[in-house]
């Protein structure tokens, strides 16, 4: 029922904070995590940080969000095409 994603606090102004989500920045209220400071990772739901998270935990749980797609990792073209095509399904 509740989408929330981790981001890193860039700056704080009173109860408000600017949080970075890998290139997306949102003004949030940190009233529910009053001790959160710039550099901290927080979980944000509907414009509010609902808890702070250890950076290691954030990266482990949401690591896939940071991953580049296969095509962004500059794999050799032949390998990519060769690897992806034959393995799909069982149709001849």
């Amino acid at each position: 029922m509740c989408l929330a994603i981790p981001g890193r606090i860039i700056e704080c102004r009173g109860d408000e904070a600017l949080v970075d989500f890998h290139g997306n920045r949102l003004e949030i209220s940190k009233i529910m995590t009053p001790d959160a400071a710039p550099g901290d990772w927080v979980l944000v739901h509907a414009g509010f940080s609902i808890c702070t998270i250890d950076k290691h935990d954030a990266l482990e749980t949401w690591g896939y969000l940071q991953q580049a797609s296969a095509s962004e990792t500059d794999e050799p073209v032949s390998d990519l095409a060769g690897r992806s095509v034959p393995k799909l399904g069982g149709t001849p």
Binding site: L3, I5, F21, G23, L26, L65, S69, A70, S71, E72
Partner: peptide, 22 residues
């Protein structure tokens, strides 16, 4: 049509934005 999620190019910034918006 069968597609493979890991092969579909989505930038990490777009993926985060999509997650933010559901």
């Amino acid at each position: 049509i069968e597609i493979i999620e890991a092969q579909i190019p989505v930038s990490p910034t777009a993926r985060h934005a999509a997650e933010m918006l559901g």
